[in-house]
Design a binder for these strands. Structure first.
Lengths: 342, 342
DNA sequence: ATGAAAGCGCTAACAC
DNA sequence: GTGTTAGCGCTTTCAT
């Protein structure tokens, strides 16, 4: 059942059926009605593949993320998907599982797919393999939008959050509460969020004239297990910190795991301010002061940026004049876990 | 840059290039090397769209889920995606947002896409619109696999969990702990999980000769807000239950929210056994006894089932002889929240 | 307003 | 082993 069958049945040419299907104005009303009737009768459904091949374009976009199970990513994905749906795009979802080789392979596969645009949360800032592939893709007229994480020295549009400011504010909250011995469990430092949040931490300390202590800086790699270890290292220091700033939701979880296991209580043994909300915890005894951000909206924004690129493309072929970066604002939610304890 | 350019450059026919690209044996080794060299030089990437159109098949599958943000769904999605990736399929992800019209619309859109198979967590058991669309799709040689939720009186393959047995076991755990006044916050009863878990609850009570009390049965619709209200209704009964069985992760969350707000403590004011694990809670004071299940594996299984259908299709065209249903086993994790309190 | 025909990039049956 | 050629289903000039 194709466009020829319909044309035949309706006694018109395939071109006319095509016009009807695509809402072209140049069709007599009578003809249109006739064709539409046949289409309805025969339950004809146009084949997008053929259309895409013919016009050299598609309505498919690709989204790559390191870890779909992480609530942060699923929330961002939700926003992205809703917006895509709204614009009529289909989205190919790919999980890179924090593995660079997988990321590369997927990027290579994608080239075959006639994708209209791509949104990616890259695994690493620094990885050349990913950077080169993305550049080649963009050079090929396929817009790339970075999400949450950056690619160093690149020319891609991106949607990020105010990680620096947010972290700074979070640490300031601890300082205001009276803390002087403030540690940080950093995230993966080969990512923008990891670096920026660390930078925010340092800034806050510096502004308050608190000397930065090397032993108070440990790396949790944005992973739960690593953050558990990091927390352990922190708590085993003789002159241990009175407060910890955690760099992400999984960082916080690893930290909490250590605290619970060792029967250490927030508000008695340690204070905490965390980056990113952990929704489920709100119904427990653990009330965390967190740096929250509009995650769903970040997903939406990424797709909006892509859409903007599609629109621009028609106006000024091939000319990327500006690199657009959208920064969504973090917000501190104070719940008490920052309180100073001796 | 297409197959003709490469053929030209290599001094062979497009057919030969096609053979090389697709690993066809009937190519002289010398020729293959020559072609491969040109492909490498010119960075030629075959166009899947054209291939798909030509062979009338694709490597794309579609996945529809009601709510991507729900950790249950993201975990299932993770399994699905990893397996798809392993088999070399691309997956189109669609969020139905618990809206039937959206589900229908997406199903209609999909028909245009030349999808190889479809995995769906349908919103409702009973909805005719979805059932009819899926039947039409399957009649069109596109295998459909149901995941977690069923479609009544349908002939689709499916992957589910042992909801009935799991719930029964959960309630039995409460009974063993000494409870007689056991309530349930049910899930959406137009879904298999909702109904089966409810059935498991009733079975456990019956086996223990405990009379079922209407006022102890409230509906939380698998939603947090509704479950909050449901819990409230339960706790305001004069002769209130000593234990609650919750039917899903969001049900549990709604319940916890009410308990916290009213300063009711598990193990003092109420006992709890819950369906589905809530990972984040493990690091808090709330240690829930839960009916856990292999969620990631359910996602994998759905794709395996699809793959099996693809393989079969070649052997016995058009003949669906068996309807395959894979049941993954739940497992009770006892953590103390079931303990009897007066 | 409509139709004829070429073409999007690839595959596969057939011929040699 | 390799080439020729006719599609796959749709769009889009270019005529009329």
């Amino acid at each position: 059942m194709n466009i020829y069958d319909i044309a035949m049945e309706a006694g018109v040419s395939p071109a006319t059926v095509s016009r009807v299907v695509n809402g072209n104005k140049n069709v007599k009303d009578e003809t249109r009605k006739k064709v539409l009737k046949i289409i309805e009768e025969k339950k004809y459904v146009p084949n997008s593949l053929a259309r895409n091949l013919s016009v050299g374009d598609s309505q498919n976009i690709a989204f790559l993320a390191p870890d779909i199970e992480n609530p942060f990513f699923s929330k961002i994905f939700h926003g992205l998907l809703d917006t895509a749906n709204q614009y009529g795009y289909n989205v190919f979802m790919y999980g890179t599982n924090d593995d660079l080789l997988t990321e590369h392979r997927i990027l290579d596969e994608i080239k075959k797919e006639m994708i209209k645009g791509i949104v990616i949360i890259p695994i690493s800032d620094k990885d050349k393999g990913t950077a080169e592939r993305l550049e080649k893709i963009q050079k090929n007229q396929i817009p790339v939008v970075l999400l949450d994480r950056d690619i160093c020295q690149s020319d891609f549009d991106g949607v990020f959050s105010t990680d620096y400011e947010g972290a700074c504010e979070g640490v300031q909250c601890l300082i205001r509460a009276g803390h002087k011995k403030i540690a940080i469990i950093t995230g993966e430092l080969d990512t923008r969020p990891g670096r920026e949040r660390f930078r925010g931490y340092k800034k806050a300390l510096k502004d308050a004239d608190i000397k930065q202590r090397t032993e108070y800086i440990v790396n949790g790699m944005f992973k739960e297990a690593e953050s558990y270890d990091a927390c352990k290292r922190l708590m085993e220091i003789d002159d241990r910190p009175t407060a910890i700033f955690t760099s992400s939701n999984l960082t916080t979880l690893g930290c909490l795991k250590y605290l619970k296991k060792n029967n250490l209580k927030i508000g008695r043994d340690i204070s905490l301010v965390c980056f990113d909300e952990i929704r489920e915890l709100q119904y427990s005894d653990i009330c965390l002061t967190v740096v929250d951000r509009p995650i769903y909206e970040m997903g939406c924004a990424a797709l909006e940026l892509l859409e903007y690129n599609f629109l621009m493309e028609n106006k000024m072929k091939n000319e990327r004049i500006v690199k657009k970066t959208n920064l969504l604002k973090t917000k501190l939610i104070v719940r008490g876990s920052e309180k100073y304890v001796v």
